[in-house]
Write a protein that binds this DNA or RNA. Structure first.
Lengths: 147, 147
DNA sequence: AAGCCAGATGCGAGCCATTTGCATCTGAGA
DNA sequence: TCTCAGATGCAAATGGCTCGCATCTGGCTT
């Protein structure tokens, strides 16, 4: 049994435990999401899932994504000017840089920013439920620094 | 002539200079936006503008908001789960905290976070075009600290 | 292995914020 | 005052997403 299968099985068991029925469609989506190294949108996930379960409907994809988000298995990101994008939550928390030219999404994490955010909210009498930090960026035209 | 009128006139002149025709509808929206102390959405701005120019259409509101955004006169914010909200750009740059319970929007600014963001982008070979930092928060249940 | 049924699916219709096509109107420079 | 590029109002279209409903199916129970 591969690592992939192993992780998948653990996850589906946990979901079943939580009362989520694992249908062919959901299994397909979970697998597609686990394999995704990018941040695909719903229609793209639908396209990929169709290769596993032909005929799966887009509404099922949307319903499943909502369910998986509620279960904490995936995250939904609403970047500017594009449909929602999704990613699984296996990795640690990170924020995103979006290349405004190419649409490419790059992840980053910064502990100091996280701490500052918490301090700011705290100082104003709030606690953070969640946050969203997106840097819309453009590649620097600089001469290659290490070349 | 009031301060309001004065600022308004300077702004409309600048816009005309930039080739933007100042129609009754646009003047009304500019005035409504200048007076807004909250972060209204398009339909609310439409409602307010109608008190100045009865019959102004929602599409004109949308078209004007897009134009004013391109001219750098206003900012468009797309918070989670709500229609876009708008604010004029007279104030300095700030980010937003959104109370997830009430929908209330609170502004804040933090120079250190701004700097960190720029450093992160720079280190990865990017320059920031613009960014979005939103803290979705909840009022702390803490005993009143100054009561 | 078969039965059961709450919950999941596929389909099409609906929703809602926003945009667009087009005929008509109007700022504002000449 | 004239002119016309550009703005407006209306209605229809768009796009991402959700929902109603008849049918199907995981996964417990027997």
């Amino acid at each position: 049994m591969t690592d992939h299968d192993h992780r998948t099985e653990k996850l589906t068991d946990a979901l079943r435990q939580a009362g989520v029925r694992i249908t062919r469609q959901r299994a397909a989506l979970l697998s597609v999401l686990a394999d995704a190294e990018d941040h695909p949108e719903a229609t793209e996930l639908h396209r990929r899932a169709e290769e596993v379960v032909p005929g799966i409907s887009l509404s099922t994809v949307y319903r499943t994504l909502t369910e998986l988000e509620m279960q904490g298995v995936i995250l939904r990101h609403q970047f500017e000017g594009t449909p929602a994008r999704f990613e699984h939550t296996e990795t640690h928390h990170h924020d995103h840089m979006i290349d405004v030219e190419t649409g490419e999404v790059v992840e980053f994490a910064n502990e100091r920013i996280e701490r500052l955010q918490a301090e700011i909210a705290d100082a104003m009498g709030y606690e953070i439920v969640h946050h969203r930090l997106e840097l819309y960026v453009r590649k620097k035209a600089s001469p290659a620094p290490q070349g």
